[in-house]
Design a protein around this nucleic acid. Structure first.
Lengths: 181, 181
DNA sequence: AAGGCCATGTAAGTAGTTACATGATTGA
DNA sequence: TCAATCATGTAACTACTTACATGGCCTT
């Protein structure tokens, strides 16, 4: 049950409406826990019902925006969750599965898929590197937001891994596919 | 929709009963696409209904075991799936989320969690390395099962990444936790 | 007043998880 | 014959996805 805690974290960083959260989940926190607006609105209702957040009394009340803020109960819940134990989930990756399938029925069409993935991971790595340059320049105190930086570096390392691995994998695939079932 | 294709792959490698598949999903294919026996039995029923597999006529018919084999339609389906495109899913990792939450409400209890994960990833890496030593010794032809080896090396690299990253992260956490909400 | 977009939702379907149920064989 | 365990399932629940619906506001 991570989505509610992702939302609590985001709201603690900055009280927001559902749509704002949705936008912020397209970057930042959403890089490692994505969510659609439908999930977010539903979860906001639950959290409000559970007394963990509340709609902040609208100062301008423009439109039908509903901005939420975290209550003490919500902060306590999140604090408890941080200390909670949970085994790392095993890898779940359709591309690796495709390779295993290809070992049985032939690799036809797989090289294009590998190239596509390579492009996506390169794009994601670039985005991460831009964020690092912007938010964690070398002259900034290393201590400030060191947790954010740690998380970002995990993303950078993972994308780097995929790029290297895909490059290596593609070397096994000459342009015209040699092996068909 | 990857589970049916994972099962088709496993059945092509070797016709099996539900329980056998379940055991094999605890290693090998299951390392990157895990499944419980409930999922497997349900999916076997669907695949049989769809005409992609069939129970192999029982030679000894011992117990109530039901062994399945893949039909041509199943092989065709899998071949088509290999060539299918699918964007890589973004990272979805509760531990990274915990770090972001900890940046807001304090890191209390997080170091134990990091150490636990470190132990798990070390264990998994050892298991992968054993498999590599057993199935892909340097003297064996590099071409034989190169796809299997590629997949295994992805697992090895990923576990290695986590071990390195967790070690680095733990350096930020002195034994007694300095920061509490 | 019409079209676009901002903002919040509902509904239905799929996939995965957890808990429980049942029959068949095997060994003490 | 009793317990264990082998083998196959059912049921209920949660999380996520996809498609669609609704109303307000803003500009032309």
């Amino acid at each position: 049950m991570s989505l509610p805690h992702a939302i609590l974290t985001a709201l603690l960083e900055k009280p927001s409406s559902g749509l704002e959260l949705t936008c912020r989940f397209d970057k930042s926190i959403g890089f490692f826990w994505s969510a659609t607006h439908q999930q977010i609105y539903r979860e906001l209702s639950r959290l409000e019902l559970g007394g963990l957040i509340r709609p902040v009394p609208q100062p301008p009340s423009r439109g039908q925006r509903k901005e939420y803020e975290v209550l003490q109960a919500g902060r306590d819940e999140l604090t408890a969750w941080v200390a909670e134990g949970q085994d790392p989930k095993p890898i779940r990756d359709a591309l690796l599965l495709r390779l295993r399938a290809a070992a049985v029925v032939g690799t036809h069409g797989l090289d294009a898929e590998l190239r596509r993935h390579l492009a996506v991971h390169r794009g994601q790595l670039d985005e991460y590197l831009d964020i690092e340059k912007r938010d964690f320049p070398p002259e900034r105190s290393a201590d400030e937001n060191r947790l954010h930086h740690l998380v970002l570096r995990a993303g950078i390392s993972l994308e780097t891994f995929w790029i290297e691995w895909l490059g290596e994998a593609l070397q096994s695939f000459p342009e015209t596919d040699p092996q068909v079932s």
